[in-house]
Simulated scan of single mutants.
Amino acid sequence: MKLAEQPVASPEAARVLQPLGLADPWRWLRAGWSDLLAAPGIALFYGGCFWLMALLLGAVFRNKAEYTLSFVSGCFLVGPFLAMGLYESSRRREQGLEQSLAASLTCWDRRLGSMGMLVLVLLLLELLWGRASLVVFAVFFTTGMPSTASVLQAVFNPQNWQFVAVYAVVGGVFAALVFSTCVVSIPMILDRDTDAVTAGIASLQLVAERTGTMLLWGALIVALVLAAVLLPWAVGLLVVGPWLGHASWHAYRGSFAWSPLTPRAQPAPPPA
């Protein structure tokens, strides 16, 4: 006799990748700007943090270029936690909750394990990036590590186009890896309490399957950051930093939806 099937409830949910177009990144920016205006004090705090990091990085590069890589490593440690605070601000506004700086500063404490794993992945990529950069420098600078002046001279000297091209390719590859791994993974960890591996895979899936949209999104991020740092004293980061943070939350929310998993079926117990 064929046994009846009974559903087994599951509290989990499956992520569903949404269709995206070239208009979506602009919509994310508009939504991010709205979030910034809704909580300008929170935005100013995080913008000030990003601005201070940029000033310190510039000072280290100009005066102690050999410590630049170490400082960048520190930015990789601090940056994700700062970004998560902005995502929390957008999340709370989306849900109609009261926004507060204290809540944004402590939102990561319940997700420290997942965030710690993701930061380790970022640090590994950054260390590999640094090693690859050293190889490029070793090929073009035979007198040891270059100083700040020699790096700038190499970049702006047309005779060193091979160095510039190779360095740009190497940097582009690692930048693409970092972007692909993190573009939605941190907001997903905040929103769903997802482990770092699952969030990273989802982020890579998004970039692989919605490549055109994500290329435009990455280009907009680069363009806005460059415009911000080219202003005197990089003051543009006071606005662009939190703006992109809020917009990245909407990039995540627009890229994935969540639906209950189809319940597994199992045979009903035989009648007594």
Rank of each mutant, 00 (worst) to 15 (best):
Y87R: 08
L105C: 10
M84P: 06
L124S: 07
Q95M: 12
L123S: 05
L86W: 02
L118H: 06
L105N: 04
V119D: 04
W108T: 04
L122P: 00
M115S: 00
L125D: 01
R111T: 03
S100H: 10
G85N: 01
R92S: 06
L101A: 04
V119G: 00
G96S: 13
G79E: 11
P80F: 06
R110N: 08
L123W: 01
L82V: 10
G79Q: 11
R131I: 07
R131M: 10
G79R: 09
R110G: 00
L105S: 04
L127W: 08
L128Y: 07
C107S: 12
A103Y: 11
V135M: 09
A103P: 03
E94Q: 14
F81V: 15
R91K: 06
W108R: 12
R131L: 12
S114W: 13
R110C: 06
S133V: 11
R93G: 03
L101K: 07
A83H: 13
A102V: 11
W129V: 02
G116A: 08
L112D: 01
E94I: 14
L112V: 09
Q95D: 00
D109H: 14
G113Q: 10
Y87W: 10
L125A: 08
D109I: 13
P80E: 08
L123T: 03
L97A: 12
E94D: 12
Q95F: 13
A103H: 14
L128M: 09
V121C: 13
C107Y: 00
L122G: 14
A83R: 12
W108A: 13
L122V: 05
M84C: 10
E126Y: 05
E88F: 11
S89R: 11
S133F: 06
C107K: 10
E126F: 03
L127A: 14
A83E: 09
S90Q: 06
Q95E: 08
W129N: 15
L118P: 04
L112F: 15
S104G: 08
F81L: 15
D109S: 14
S104W: 10
F81C: 10
S89Q: 03
W129I: 00
R131G: 13
S90P: 06
W129H: 13
L97F: 12
L128D: 08
L125I: 09
L124E: 02
L118M: 10
R92G: 02
V135Y: 05
S100I: 03
R93I: 04
G96M: 09
L123C: 03
F81S: 05
D109K: 15
G96T: 09
